[in-house]
Simulated assay, not measured.
Amino acid sequence: MSVDVFDRVIKNAIDVMENSKYQIFEICENVRAEREALNKELQLVIEETAITIDIVDKFEVDYRRSRVRLTEVSRDFKRFNEEDIRAAYEAATQLQAQLAIHREKELHLKMRRDDLQKRLKNLDKQLERAEALVSQFGVVLEYLSGDLHQVTRLLESAKSRQLMGLKIILAQEEERKRIAREIHDGLAQNMANMVLRTEITERMLAKEAYSAVKEELADLKSGVRAGIEEVRKIIFNLRPMALDDLGLVPTLRKFVQDYEERSKISTKFELIGKEVRLPSGMEVAVYRLVQEAFSNVLKHAEASHITLELTFQQQMIKLTVTDNGVGFNTAGIDKKITQGSHYGLMGMRERVELLEGRFDIQSEVGAGTKVSMVIPIKSESKEE
């Protein structure tokens, strides 16, 4: 097949995929808009439900008192006449009717709340699938939109290089998707909630409910602080600045401490040998490997203790992550990783291989897991 024919085929495919990508993107935007509207409605329903529950509780107390009063006047004919009994009966009947009405309203609001929560959950699933499709289309379009002559040369040379390039692009898109989801699920939700709380505060000010306004402002202040912490966490996950300022070992110590506080899993960090500053890219890669290893333990191992051992030698560094979790059967693990059934391990192995290192797993069911990674330090690294 000539380059011109190949070029024409690729361009037609790109046009079709571009149109499909924008259609899916419009679907995503519509789902997001619907989700935002439903979320606002849900917040209002939750607020109204809380108010209705308080009213029902008050009516229940008043109704019990009226029943006691009715019993009292009905028994004591000396102190109370027929008019007193009728008044007590009418009061109890009226409170009973009001209580029934508000109980019905409470039941209706709770059903509405549950229905909105289910719809929001379904919309989240639809949005996740649509975003995955957009991401996949973006990856393929970026790959196809490159230099077609270069693509032809890649096709004629090593197939493994093509696959590696595609995996790198996929990894980039997955990272972008992860960051977008963190912002959407964390910071964006907090900001939307603060806008809603501000509107509620405005309504309270109109009613001169100053004590309630003070409480709402305190909650808003806490929400802003939580948003700031979320931004700092996202920035740190993108690029730990401590790597540039302090180096790999202090950054890993801080990561291990934060992990223990967050996950409640006991951790231990051991340094063997004398620390040597590595190239910036290699330090980031090592840090990401530790992140992924600890994340896998949290998701799958059910462990109560993790040990990170970092060994510096003249021509290599060695990372060893050991946990006391449930473990697994390693029979055929290399094939499973290659086939992509263990995504976390597959990503770690690919990172190590890009650094021309070795990756090894030792595990038994019920006996924990040990992941070892050996990464060579090249001569130019040592000079740096």
Rank of each mutant, 00 (worst) to 15 (best):
L116F: 05
A171N: 15
L166S: 04
A180G: 04
R113Y: 02
Q172T: 06
A206D: 09
A209N: 12
V195A: 06
L109P: 02
S135W: 04
N193F: 07
Q150W: 03
V195W: 01
L123R: 02
L109C: 01
M164G: 11
L163A: 12
R113P: 01
L187F: 12
G186R: 01
L133I: 13
K125H: 14
V134D: 12
E182Y: 03
H149A: 11
R153N: 09
L127F: 11
L141P: 05
S160Q: 10
S157K: 10
E106M: 11
H108F: 10
E175R: 05
N190V: 02
H149R: 09
K159A: 07
E173N: 05
K167C: 10
N193E: 11
V151I: 12
R129T: 08
K105D: 14
R178P: 00
L141N: 04
S135L: 05
E128G: 02
A209K: 15
V140H: 04
I179D: 03
E142P: 00
Q126V: 04
K159E: 04
M111W: 06
I168A: 09
R181G: 07
E202S: 05
K110Y: 07
E173W: 04
N190I: 08
R112G: 00
R129D: 13
F137H: 07
E199P: 01
L187N: 02
L109V: 01
L107Q: 15
D124A: 08
H102F: 15
L154C: 00
D124S: 07
R113Q: 13
L120V: 03
G186P: 02
S157L: 12
D185C: 04
E128T: 09
L120A: 01
L127M: 13
L155D: 09
E173L: 00
R153F: 03
E182S: 08
H149T: 12
L205Y: 05
L196C: 04
E173P: 00
V140C: 03
R112M: 04
I169N: 05
M111C: 02
E142M: 02
K118G: 07
A130C: 03
L120K: 07
A100G: 09
A100M: 11
M164Y: 10
K105I: 10
T198N: 12
V151F: 09
Q98C: 07
E199Q: 14
E106L: 10
V134F: 11
K125R: 14
I200S: 03
F137C: 02
E174P: 00
Q136M: 01
Q98A: 14
E199H: 15
E142Q: 04
R112I: 00
Q189H: 04
Q150P: 00
M111V: 06
Q150M: 12
N190C: 01
L205R: 08
Q150N: 10
I183A: 05
H108Q: 13
R153M: 08
K167F: 14
T201A: 13
S135C: 05
L170I: 09
R197Y: 00
E142T: 05
Q126F: 06
F137S: 06
Q172I: 06
E202R: 10
M204K: 15
I200E: 06
E142N: 05
A100T: 12
R153T: 06
L107R: 15
G165Q: 11
A132T: 07
A192V: 08
E208N: 10
K207I: 13
I200V: 15
A188Q: 03
M194E: 13
H149V: 11
D147F: 01
N193D: 09
T152F: 04
T201Q: 06
E104P: 00
